Simulated scan of single mutants.
Amino acid sequence: MSTHTSPCEPTGRVLVWDLPVRVFHWLLAISFAGAWLTSESERWHLAHITFGYTMAGLVAFRLVWGLVGTRHARFASFVRAPAAAWRYLKSLVTPTPEHPIGHNPAGALAIVGLLALIALTTATGWANENDLAGDWLEELHELGANALMLLVLVHLVGVAVGSLMHRENLVRSMITGMKRGPAAQGITRSWRWLGALVLLAVLGFWGLQWQTAPTPEQLAEATSAGQSGRDHDDDD
């Protein structure tokens, strides 16, 4: 079934994004921003790890929800070949641009890329944290993080362009879940309990990490011990 809005179809405000998708989106944005801002800080290293593990868990949830979730959350409803993305981008400069009610084909490719890069970055970060490889893996982790930031910027530009071309606030739609489209293309259930469960799971994980975080005195002792070890190695 087509998910494009036809000029002949009556349109109104319909529910497109269920609550789990919206909660996932904003928690992922917060976690990525937090991980990026704490990436170079020894003091905030635990926060960096916490945000990274949160991203990994969110991606795992999204992969499952992309298979069994609501209509516009399922990958089958929006993931298309690169040719479809190119056709969509070309339509933006025409008088009648394509206007999918869910993710557009270009945005879908960005989403797939984001999920893949997050999986790569969090996996290499976990491996580095557990000393499973050498410097090359740390460099791969940094490369993945930089590529992820670049794709996030591309995604933000795409959201801005899509909002202007379609005269619809796409950021607001990811808050309310509502978009303009035919009633037949909307979803009937928001799955509020599942969205709340995802939010509580993340907040609970953050709270657990906070409770087990080392005190400033412990951090100072660990830093001092690490410095003493390096000095001893230099003497040898």
Rank of each mutant, 00 (worst) to 15 (best):
V154N: 07
T5S: 09
L92F: 06
R80Y: 12
L27N: 00
L92G: 07
E98M: 15
D135A: 09
K179F: 05
D233Y: 15
A76S: 13
L28M: 13
A106F: 14
D18E: 00
R180I: 06
G204E: 12
G158P: 05
H232I: 08
D236L: 12
M165Y: 06
P216A: 15
A222V: 11
R71N: 05
S31K: 01
V93G: 09
L150Y: 13
S39D: 07
A220D: 12
L28P: 01
A213E: 14
T70A: 08
V14E: 00
R172D: 03
R189E: 09
Q227I: 10
I111E: 14
A222W: 11
I118Y: 02
R87K: 15
L19H: 02
S91F: 02
G134S: 02
T54D: 01
I111P: 04
L132Q: 10
L46D: 10
A220E: 15
G107L: 07
V154K: 01
L137K: 02
R172G: 05
H166R: 13
L148T: 14
F61A: 12
T122D: 02
G34P: 05
W210R: 10
H99M: 11
L19R: 02
G226E: 08
L37Y: 09
W206G: 08
V59Q: 03
L58E: 03
G207M: 08
V64R: 11
A196T: 08
G181A: 04
H48A: 08
S173I: 03
L114D: 04
M149E: 06
G207R: 05
L148E: 04
G181V: 00
I49W: 12
W210V: 07
D233Q: 14
V152N: 01
E129M: 05
L137N: 00
V59C: 07
H155C: 12
G158E: 08
H166T: 06
T96V: 05
L114Q: 10
F24N: 00
E98A: 15
A83L: 08
A201G: 15
V93T: 14
S39K: 03
G69F: 01
A83K: 07
D233F: 14
W44H: 04
A29M: 12
A184F: 02
E129P: 00
V159C: 05
Q209R: 14
E98S: 13
A108V: 01
V59D: 03
W136P: 01
L115F: 12
L148Q: 02
W36N: 03
L109H: 08
V21M: 08
L219Q: 14
G12V: 07
A222I: 08
G207I: 03
K90D: 09
L67N: 06
L140A: 15
G226D: 06
A196E: 03
L63M: 13
T54S: 15
A123W: 15
R62I: 06
A116F: 14
H25W: 06
M165A: 14
G113Y: 04
W17C: 00
R62M: 09
L137T: 02
H141F: 10
N146E: 09
N130G: 00
V112L: 15
I118G: 02
T38P: 02
M1A: 11
M1I: 07
F61G: 04
I101W: 05
